[in-house]
């Protein structure tokens, strides 16, 4: 265990833990758009920058990304100093110039007092902030269907050759983790479309409710050894099936007792 001071309060943390997870546990609200616990910290959005110092640093301070900074004994952290807020404001201002139409970015920027970007808005902007969560989560799931393509300001998230990605199973995780909801998909009838690829949704054989795609179910069956017939019913019908079984068991035991 290490002991550190966050905003004047002494806090205990596990060795090797990142600063951001400690502040989150302590209920301190630090914005972070590229962070998700399912994947390794990345440090791309720079919104979780905090000010750190130590008693022995002689008044010298440093600014670090909390998501990537491992806690140290005796660390003194300021999560909302005026300088930190100013850095966040500028970064949000830059994001607002990139994604002027994103409600999520507009709201976060407004929280830091930026309602209109001071910079030149980027023409034909979409709402992607290139946080890389979609690609990293896809990689974490083991599919690696999409990746970032190119570099710098022209970088985009795309499937290989910008064609329908052969390795995508239509699990929607990319769209689910996107902080600005920019990844579009459509569920219509028993068809799901994402990244220009169509998938068949498995319909519950009792009620017709759809949960996941057949490709995803097949991947789970083969990789994780889950019997394929598990996917035939929806969760609701599974529960009903269980209660009916329970009834049979109880009535069988009553009959056996009498």
């Amino acid at each position: 265990m290490v002991s550190l001071t966050i905003n004047g309060r002494v806090v205990q943390a596990n060795k090797g833990e990142m600063l951001l997870s400690v502040t989150r546990r302590e209920g301190i609200d630090i914005p972070a758009l590229c962070h998700h616990d399912a994947v390794e910290p990345f440090g791309a959005c720079r919104l979780c920058m905090v000010e750190i110092t130590k008693a022995e640093w002689d008044g010298w301070t440093n600014y670090v990304a909390a998501c990537l900074y491992p806690v140290e004994d005796g660390l003194i952290v300021q999560t909302h100093s005026s300088k930190v807020n100013e850095l966040r404001r500028t970064v949000l201002d830059l994001l607002l110039a990139r994604c002027p139409n994103s409600p999520e970015i507009r709201q976060l920027a407004a929280e830091y007092g930026v309602t209109q970007t001071a910079y030149e808005e980027i023409p034909d902007a979409d709402n992607c902030i290139l946080c890389g969560l979609c690609t990293r989560v896809c990689e974490r799931l083991g599919f690696k269907a999409i990746s970032t393509v190119g570099r710098g300001h022209d970088k985009v998230v795309a499937p290989p050759l910008k064609e329908a990605p052969p390795d995508c199973v239509g699990c929607l995780s990319c769209a689910q983790v996107c902080p600005t909801n920019v990844i579009q998909y459509e569920d219509e009838g028993n068809k799901r479309t994402i990244w220009n690829k169509s998938f068949e949704l498995i319909a519950c054989k009792e009620c017709g409710k759809q949960t996941i795609t057949r490709d995803f179910a097949e991947a789970l069956s083969s990789q994780r050894n889950i019997p394929e017939d598990y996917f035939e019913l929806c969760d609701e019908c599974h529960r009903r099936e269980l209660s009916v079984k329970m009834g049979s068991i109880v009535s069988w035991s009553r009959e056996a007792a009498s």
Partner: peptide
């Protein structure tokens, strides 16, 4: 030549 990973470099240098 910015790799485009972090916002200040990618967006900031562009601006």
């Amino acid at each position: 030549e910015s790799c485009g990973k972090c916002v200040p470099c990618r967006e900031g240098l562009y601006q």
